[in-house]
Amino acid sequence: MQLEQLISKFQEKDIKSFERLYEMYSDSMFGVIYAIVRNKEEAEEVLQDVFVKAWKSSSSYSAKKGRFFTWILNIARNSAIDKIRSKSFNQGKQNLDATFFVDILETYDNLDTKIDISGLQKYVNTLRDTCKKLIELLYFKGYTQKEASVALKIPLGTVKTNNRKCISELRKNVLK
């Protein structure tokens, strides 16, 4: 079935189509959430919340407003950021400046696990720090182009062109 059809059946509350979409997007959304909350159990909890929210607000999606992937990504990163906000609030500390992507490889290094991260290494290793920072803001923190331009103190157009270069590099690595 075409993605468009699948999405419209999902919006008609067809559970089978929803399950297909879950299969397509749950691994990537888990990754996004994990990068933000950095805890497996919590990330699973948030992942479930994200798909329950998606089901409940399926009617709010419109292809005219953006890709389905972008829509669910937005729910995922907002839910994950909410999660760490409430956590840091409970613990009385401020870690809202936390990084989600620039140090992702180091996190795994520290976690003395047997998880194979060679795939991630291959994708991310060649990226320059400026690229990681840019991807972090735009993709993991959901900054707009303008917000990223302010945060990084670079012109609006430069955000666009630099990001294009970074993602092209990433795409090359993914295809390798």
């Binding site: 990330a43 699973e44 795409r171």
Partner: peptide, 19 residues
């Protein structure tokens, strides 16, 4: 572009999720 984003995210998650 979407595919690239998905691949990287999947690699971060590493299919650890049991849910």
């Amino acid at each position: 572009i979407e595919q690239a984003f998905m691949k990287v995210s999947e690699a971060i998650g590493n299919k650890q999720s049991d849910s």
